[in-house]
Design a protein around this nucleic acid. Structure first.
Length: 776
DNA sequence: AATACTCCAATTTTT
DNA sequence: TTGGAGTATT
């Protein structure tokens, strides 16, 4: 380990690093070297005799956890770091919960539901309770349940809490308490926890099992929390419990960057820390190493409009830098053009690479105009956020199999796959099974296993038995020491999913096939990566599932070295920095969002978000806003954002003319209409080479499927009864094909036909679609 | 079973 | 405008 590690730190940084025992709060301004302090402190602890096994370090993202681990390892120059417990709140708690699951009545292979899973459970419950999902919007209900868990409120407490009930009554949604109750029971029955449960159940575990609490209090003698300003009450209480014995709690955060209150975070946690823990040592990191003076000054001025902050004075030794360029365009499309032009120009003038630029917006929906203009200029880019890999339908379907194999209690996932691929288990059968399961207080799966006893017959019984046998054979595989990859391959083969997707030659089908391959590859990679802590069965299916349930695509193919302009929401940009930043869409109702201007608290959070956006920039910052933009299909006019008025004029340059010659005068007041001559450039030029997009994005727009078959002039349908496999037939739309199979009774014949020119295998119901026999 | 349609809603989202 | 969900059509 390096000896001079303390010498590389400034005064307050060193103070933070060398404080070993007792509560410590590090207030770390943007760009003040927070991660460096955290990692160095861990190294310092180890050097001073603390055992790595006794250190717990919690972050919010996998990425942050990974980076921390790597940096500690680098400082130490040894593998001692792998004994540290570094991870996200969710992944660390999931692991502990897995170890103690039986105490709470959960299987140790419990499934983790993401928010889509959770919402679909809520939908079925709304159905059961005969509630209207227009009024009880699943999203909203989920939000209420999530908020309840994040503030450690059980369904019973929720239903008996006066204030909460009042609130629901006023919103005319009195049933949310019951829905919460049913939801919690359903999840438990399914052996599943949602993201919030990972915190809530962890709290319950520590609260109700003193021996468990004692065990972990003694294991985790030193606790570090990153991004403390974004913790919620559940996380707060857990930390309090875990840290109670030693109070060696070190929190790091910046109240000015608290931007997740809508996810339950309370800024109070950091504001109150000193009061919560006596003798707290407070260290403020106020020197910024990231940005120019201009950028930092603007940020400081703007955030100064917020009340109730921890007083601090962020400063920098960096150069003055250029003024902030404030640019107004007439439309959102022009805004896109301006940014793309400017990127091209800056690359030439200041020798930037694509990866030096980042475009930051308030909402994902704003990305479109930038995508278009970047594509038109052939500038490679990558969009972060949006639909994640693991949310794609084909991926979820496939993972459902794996989840069911590892936890058959999970009714939701069974229902997802029981008839995918189609195997003749329809709605009626599923409903019957559900009724039986309820009546006999059994799981859905157990009813399937004993289908014969429940009176299922004939083809249905056969289909169910086939499904059960198949799943059981996978389970047997998983238990016989086959690793996750072997099982996954078997699933792909036996279910026919891989083959089915392979045969689908449409563009989307191809993308789906590739996604599945990518998934299989990632499973393979998982099984082949050496285990970190040498735990047994580490490559099992269960471990794999546990891990990926907590993964987001930000953690995935984040190739730092790929040279692409980055596009993301401001939320997604927290913790990152870029030489040149474009902060776009600075308009009232967009930013600040019209949803968040009703209370002072909401508005202040928007302002913090703006602060985060500004402080991402190292040397150049462009802020743009459009006079009018399309929103939900119609052109709307927006006033310039109020935040623009909060930036002192002396740091601004309103005359930047961009890469081309375009209107760039400004004035946050009403400086009249522009002299733009491209006001009408809405018309879409066809996108040129989409070479720059990435696999992160959903599949490219489907090309027109080649189904434009012109039927033969003598086309006359033939009698379905005479058709047999092997015959060549013609379909009015799909063209010529070969029958590979026939099924169904006389009055409802179904032919499986391979159409080489129209996307491969299709099932044709002969009652409706007509076929003509070409060759017997 | 697959498709074609109609209608409706629409922040941010570390896990 | 987009996308999803639900319904109707073949």
């Amino acid at each position: 380990m390096k000896d001079n590690y303390l010498a590389e730190l400034n005064e307050p940084q060193r103070a933070a690093v060398t404080h070993i025992n007792g509560p410590l709060m590090i207030v770390a301004g943007a760009g003040s070297g927070k991660t460096k302090v955290l990692t160095t402190r861990i190294a310092h602890l180890l050097r001073n005799g603390v055992d790595a096994f006794n250190i717990l370090s919690l972050t919010f993202t996998n990425k942050a956890a990974k980076e921390m681990k790597e940096r500690v390892e680098r400082i130490l120059g040894s593998s001692e770091a792998r004994n540290l417990y570094i991870g996200t709140f969710h992944s660390v708690f999931a692991r502990l919960l897995r170890a103690e699951a039986t105490k709470l009545g959960y299987p140790s292979d419990f499934t983790i539901y993401d928010s889509d899973d959770a919402k679909s459970v809520i939908k079925t419950i709304l159905n059961d309770l005969n509630l209207d999902d227009k009024h009880y919007k699943p999203n909203l209900v989920y939000g209420r349940i999530s908020a309840a868990k994040n503030s450690l409120m059980s369904p019973e407490e929720y239903q008996h809490d006066h204030a909460v009930q009042q609130e629901d009554m006023r919103a005319n949604r009195p049933m949310i308490g019951q829905i919460y109750d049913a939801y919690a029971k359903r999840c438990f029955k399914n052996g599943a926890m949602d993201f919030d449960d990972l915190l809530y159940k962890m709290y319950l575990l520590l609260k109700h099992f003193p021996d468990v609490l004692h065990k972990y209090q003694h294991k985790f003698k030193y606790i570090m929390i990153d991004e403390y300003q974004d913790t919620n009450p559940a996380q707060y209480e857990i930390i309090k419990l875990l840290g109670a014995a030693h109070e060696n709690i070190c929190v790091v955060g910046d109240d000015a960057q608290s931007i997740y209150s809508f996810r339950g975070a309370t800024i109070q946690n950091i504001l109150q820390f000193e009061k919560d823990y006596e003798d707290t040592k407070v260290v403020k990191l106020e020197q910024n190493y990231r940005s120019t003076k201009s950028i930092l000054n603007v940020a400081n001025e703007v955030i100064g409009n917020n009340k109730g902050q921890i007083p601090k004075n962020l400063w920098t030794d960096n150069t003055e830098g250029e003024k902030i360029k404030l640019v107004r365009t007439m439309t959102d499309n022009e805004e896109g053009k301006f940014v793309a032009d400017t990127i091209a120009e800056q690359k030439l003038r200041n020798h930037y690479a694509n990866r030096d630029f980042c475009i930051l917006y308030r909402t994902n929906a704003q990305s479109r105009s930038f995508e278009e203009s970047l594509r038109r200029m052939n500038i490679p880019y990558r969009i972060f956020g949006g639909i994640s890999f693991y949310q794609r339908k084909e991926i979820k379907d496939f993972l459902s199999y794996l989840r069911v194999i590892s936890n058959t209690r999970d009714e939701e996932n069974i229902k997802r796959i029981i008839n995918y691929p189609v195997r003749g288990i329809g709605k009626t059968t599923i409903e019957k099974t559900m009724v039986f399961a309820n009546e006999h207080n059994m799981t859905f799966w157990d009813v399937l296993v004993r289908a014969r006893e429940f009176g299922f017959k004939g083809g249905t019984l056969e289909a169910i038995d086939g499904f059960v046998t198949m799943i059981q054979s996978f389970q047997a595989m998983a238990q016989q020491n086959h690793n996750a990859y072997d099982v996954a391959i078997a699933v792909g083969k036996s279910t026919g999913i891989v083959k089915e997707l392979f045969n689908d030659k449409t563009t989307e089908g191809l993308a789906r096939y590739e996604n599945i391959q990518e998934l299989l590859n990632s499973i393979k990679e998982f099984t082949e990566t050496p285990t970190e802590d040498g735990e047994l069965l580490e490559k099992s299916l269960g471990t794999y599932l546990q891990q990926i349930s907590l993964l987001t695509d930000a953690d995935n193919g984040n190739d730092e070295n790929s040279d692409q302009v980055k596009l993301m929401t401001i939320h997604a940009a927290k913790g990152l920095e870029f030489p040149v930043v474009f902060n776009v869409g600075l308009e009232e109702s967009l930013f600040p969002s019209s949803m968040s201007i009703n209370t002072r608290e909401e508005l202040e959070e928007e302002r913090r978000l703006f602060y985060v956006a500004v402080t991402r920039a190292k040397s150049r910052l462009f802020i743009t806003y459009a006079n009018s933009r399309y929103r939900f299909g119609n052109l709307v006019q927006n006033e310039p954002s109020r935040f623009l008025d909060e930036m002192p004029e002396k740091y601004l340059d309103r005359s930047y003319a961009g890469g081309g010659v375009r209107n760039a005068f400004g004035g946050s007041g009403n400086s009249g209409w522009g002299n733009s001559n491209n006001m009408f450039d809405r018309k879409k030029t066809p996108a040129t080479t989409p070479q720059s997009t990435t696999s992160q994005r959903p599949a490219p727009k489907p090309a027109v499927v080649a189904t434009n078959h012109v039927p033969s002039p003598n086309f006359t349908p033939d009698d379905p009864a005479t058709m047999e496999p092997g015959m060549e037939v013609e379909h009015q739309k799909f063209g010529f094909g070969t029958i590979t199979a026939m099924e169904g009774a006389m009055h409802n014949r179904i032919a499986t036909v391979v159409f080489p020119k129209a996307g491969g295998e299709k099932k044709i119901m002969l009652n409706y679609a007509k076929l003509m026999i070409v060759k017997k």
